[in-house]
Computed example of a mutant assay.
Amino acid sequence: MAKLLCLGDSIMWGVTGFDAAHPRANPTIPYKIGQLIGAQTDNRAVSATSVNDGGQSMVDLLPTVNLADYDYILLGYGANDWGLNRETLDALKAGLEIFSSMYTASGSTAYVLADLMIESFINNATSLDSPNKIGVTQNQVMDTFKDWATEHGYYCYDWRQNPIVTPQNYKTRLGDGCLHPDFDTQMEMATRLADYIKSTDKGSHSHPQPTQPTGPQPTDSPIINPTSPTEPEQPTQPTQPPVKLIDSIKLDRLSDLFGIGTNVSTGVDRVIAKLNELYKTLETVMGTEHQVVQKTLTMPGDELSRPVRNYVLLSFQHLQSAINDLIRVCNGNWIVDPVSGDPTPMLELERVDRLATDHYYQDTVNANWQMIEGAINKEIKYLNQVLKGE
């Protein structure tokens, strides 16, 4: 049986949106294409990745596969290459050339299809010519893919010629309203791509026997449509263990002014522990630099005094700085609002610097705890979506 390899991002992985109403596509685009063209599918797509930047990019994954083992290769990138605001066109071209070099070196004769990105509405884009933060437009990304495919004799599907997602329909076509096609749209995309493959495949590629895999082999689990009982059963993959998500943080509020030192010290410990947990997860998932937040101040006690007042003031300043450092790392790795694509704003706490330790002082302390909770839990929510592959 012919084999289809897919290297791509979250759309090819099957993200259809960011809530319970939009689970992973079942089947995914690559698996549906495989069904339609009669090929066994090996889907290596990874959410939040790109051609030559970020965790498990195409360049990272290429050494784990033998391209000569496949009859069809589908490349589904572009959205993150533009949306992450950091991959230059030169870097994109370099990554694509690495694929071509490895394709040639492997002796592969597989049919290669570059599936250009559909129009995205993140980064406040209003058209395909809207630049991202480094001045690159979606049109430029698409043209880079198209020129590369033409130069190397690969096939290319350009959605601009007959768009399936447009500025007029994207709010109903995209499950999250900005980036990921809903399930019905993904199935339309798969059908179009399969029809294109069948109409352009000249059958000149070989059908080699698969060699021993050189790396991990993640594949889609075939799902049988319950409304089609006559469809032959397909082998399924072993059930994967559930993803361990990050628990939200809950901070104690100050209920007694005479316990303010203990309240702040306990809160600082919990925040630092949670920040370090998040940094560890980011390092594992996104390949960020190793970072550890340290406690810098010693509690002088609970007595209402100037040393305690200064301890409280400096503690909140330290937490604000540490949390904003985390927010910058998350924004830089596109762990942001999945609907708007907007980066998370910096945290601005109230200054707890009044000498009078009255109810206003207590309310300010508690307001800061609430803002800290909200900022950290927002990043936890976004990161958990990445952990779930959304």
Rank of each mutant, 00 (worst) to 15 (best):
L67C: 09
P210K: 07
K381C: 00
Y382T: 08
D252H: 14
D81W: 01
D252I: 07
M1L: 12
S265T: 10
Y360E: 08
A45T: 04
A194L: 04
A105G: 02
G135R: 02
I327E: 02
Y360W: 04
L251G: 05
D184P: 10
D184E: 14
Q294N: 06
L116V: 15
K3R: 15
V339T: 09
L61E: 11
T214I: 15
F145H: 12
G203N: 13
L193H: 06
C156Q: 10
D143M: 13
D115Q: 12
D342R: 13
Q138L: 06
A190Y: 05
L36W: 02
P241M: 03
R173E: 05
M346S: 14
K93V: 09
P242C: 02
S206A: 15
Q234S: 08
P235V: 00
P181W: 02
G261F: 11
A322V: 10
T230P: 00
D184Y: 10
V51S: 01
M286D: 03
L254V: 10
D60Y: 04
Q320D: 05
E233L: 13
R351A: 08
R328S: 12
N169H: 13
G54P: 06
D81Y: 03
I335E: 03
M58P: 07
G95H: 04
N26Q: 09
V352D: 01
L5V: 00
A48T: 10
I11T: 14
C330K: 12
I29Q: 03
N26E: 02
M12A: 15
M102G: 04
S106P: 04
P345V: 03
K280Q: 12
D81K: 01
P167V: 06
T236A: 06
E119H: 10
E97L: 11
P181H: 06
E390R: 14
